[in-house]
Simulated scan of single mutants.
Amino acid sequence: MSEPTDPRPVLVIGGPTASGKSGLALALAKRANGVVINADSMQVYADLHIVTARPSAADEAQALHTLYGVVPASTRMSAARWRELALAEIDAAHAAGRLPIVVGGTGLYLRSLMQGLSDIPEIPAGTRQAAMDLQAEIGSPALHARLAEIDPVTAARLHPTDSQRLIRAWEVIQATGRSISDWQSAPPTDAPTHLSFTTLVVEPPRPRLYAQCDRRFLLMLEQGAEQEVAALMAQGLDPALPAMKALGVPEIASMLSGTLDRNAATEKAQQLTRNYAKRQLTWFRNQMPAALRLDSTELASETAFAKLYDRIMTGMTKNIAKMG
Rank of each mutant, 00 (worst) to 15 (best):
E149T: 12
A92S: 07
L99P: 05
A156Y: 04
V70I: 15
P160K: 03
P141Q: 14
G126D: 13
L147K: 02
A96W: 10
A86P: 00
Q115M: 07
L110Q: 06
Q129L: 14
P121Q: 13
I101D: 09
G104F: 07
L143V: 04
E122D: 15
M132W: 15
L134N: 06
G69M: 13
P100T: 05
A155Y: 05
S118V: 05
P100Y: 08
E122I: 11
V102H: 02
L113S: 00
V70Y: 12
R98Y: 11
I90D: 05
P121R: 09
L158H: 11
I120N: 09
L158T: 06
L147E: 01
A86Q: 04
T161K: 15
P121N: 13
P124D: 05
E84W: 05
L67N: 08
R83E: 01
S140V: 03
R98C: 03
T127V: 08
S56E: 07
A130S: 11
M132I: 07
M114W: 04
T66L: 04
L134Q: 12
M132E: 12
E122R: 14
A93Y: 06
S140Y: 00
L99W: 15
R146E: 15
V102S: 02
D119Y: 05
H94E: 04
E149H: 12
S112F: 15
D133W: 05
L67I: 05
S118L: 01
R98F: 04
P72E: 00
P121F: 12
L99S: 03
L108P: 01
A58T: 11
P72V: 05
A92T: 03
D59S: 12
D119Q: 12
E89I: 14
Y109I: 10
L113M: 09
